[in-house]
Design a protein around this nucleic acid. Structure first.
Lengths: 274, 274
DNA sequence: CGATAAAATACCATATAAGATATTTAAGTA
DNA sequence: TACTTAAATATCTTATATGGTATTTTATCG
């Protein structure tokens, strides 16, 4: 995944909804800025660093940090004046009911698939027009192919998971979504032609799985299959990802069948009726 | 775990630090109240329900909800006027660096232990005087012994993990901590006598693992061993938990050795030098 | 150990966000 | 289609949280 969204937290539309929404609570917006900043940062940040990056008046920032620290959202680090994300976030993050259900149902199957293939196994879903990685089991290759759990990604056309979702939308919705983001070339392999994409989507529907060949990141391939819930709604996707060295083109169909098979079993686990 | 803390989010001290801290940002406190309320609730909540539970003026609440929704922290549900935790929380929850490191290092070993024992395997740590469950692999018994990942628990004396931490503290700190919370009887088996507890802690130091016999919940036993990081600091604990039916007293030593063994390997993975 | 720099606390005037009131929109029901 | 209920938006005044400025605390370094 390209570094520009690697920080992950970024909603693609954040750029547009610039500040100062009259129907907002400004202090809360600021607090969220602080939290996201700390979450995105690899290391702990000092008061003055935060101050420099966010243009919040010193006194207000201190008040916000006090609040967040007392609530466990943010932690004061060893060194006085340094801050980092707090454990409470872990707890809150684990309260997203339905996604968590998918995760717990899927995990054992993912584990199995990982042991069979020795590849990276990914569980993803769509949330507010963004693809989100819910769970991941890293393969033996040691390459981290995706960003961290929870990161969102807006370019549906460049990812196998996105193709699954696009293939499931009715035409109207699909066009609306694609118009909003366009078909930017993430790599030189990304599909940037609408007709070509539609053809690919037909193939997805035919095969029952989606294939992604270095379209998101050079050197990385993926196959992904849809998971359905008890009402036969698309609940998420499970996929196999690997570098071109261990995932050759001839493996495509074989891996495709494997994810399909696994996805079907997870769907059963989610209560899908046959 | 008794239901009073099952909602989990509750810092044991929340009761005391009642509202209106002058050094706080009130709007942020309110927003956090909303988030925690939604996170603790099983189902989606309507505006008026939140209103009733939190005594925030209607207009202010709407502003806060608007902010949280636009930021992805909260989601508007299908039904207009209903709210639930948003996916952004998942992402933020996965940004707690060091804990996440422990988790990713430990996971494969936990998996192994789970396959060997068919019991529930738990990874926990101490954070701000509270025990926190970081990761869990549910055993075949299907009984959920602990609350969800991220929940915090203050009664160190009633849990094997807590005993590990108590055993590692110097006397002064230990007394301070225990005084603060006391030795309340969580079940009829909970150790409520100081001398008895100290004896148990000595045993923990001797054995290298802690044992918990229905002290937190009737019918449940645990063995837990400490994990150390590269500076030989206590980084967390791994444990086996099961009901008395599948975890008999005669299994204690055998399971104890197993967690010790696994904990040692995780410690190596965390960079502990021998 | 004294000097320096940064964080945390304290105080207070004022800009501003909060909250009461009223209006519009939406959903559910008869 | 009209009726009912609740949510969302809009408007405006005042209380209040904000953000200056100054002070105290804490840590670091020569």
């Amino acid at each position: 995944m390209p570094s520009r969204s690697a920080s992950g937290t970024g909603n693609a539309l954040t750029i547009f909804m610039n500040k100062k929404n009259p129907a907002h609570a400004p202090a809360v917006d600021r607090a969220l800025d602080v939290i996201e900043l700390l979450a995105a940062s690899e290391r702990e940040l000092s008061l003055s660093e935060i101050l420099a990056m966010l243009d919040i008046p010193r006194q207000s920032l201190i008040r916000i940090l006090n609040t967040l620290c007392d609530r466990g959202i943010v932690d004061r680090a060893q060194q006085r004046g340094y801050y980092r994300p707090g454990m409470k976030l872990l707890h809150l993050g684990n309260s997203i009911q339905d996604k968590i259900k998918l995760r717990s149902v899927a995990r054992p199957y993912m584990q199995e698939l990982a042991q069979e293939t020795h590849k990276t196994i990914e569980l993803s879903t769509l949330d507010r027009d963004q693809l989100v990685l819910i769970e991941q089991i890293e393969g033996t290759e040691g390459v981290r192919l995706y960003t961290r759990i929870g990161s969102a990604y807006p370019y549906l056309h460049a990812v196998a998971v996105g193709k699954i979702y696009l293939a499931h939308m009715d035409e109207e919705k699909r066009h609306k979504v694609l118009e909003k983001i366009g078909l930017p070339a993430v790599t030189e392999y990304t599909i940037v032609d609408m007709k070509e994409l539609e053809e690919d989507l037909s193939r997805v529907r035919e095969n029952g799985y989606a294939f992604e060949d270095q379209e998101l990141r050079k050197g990385v391939r993926r196959v992904v299959a849809p998971i359905y819930d008890y009402r036969n709604d698309l609940a998420g996707c499970i996929g196999i990802a690997a570098t071109v060295f261990s995932f050759e083109l001839k493996d495509r169909e074989r891996f495709g069948q494997m994810v399909k098979e696994t996805a079907a079993r997870i769907s059963s686990g989610m209560g899908k009726k046959k």
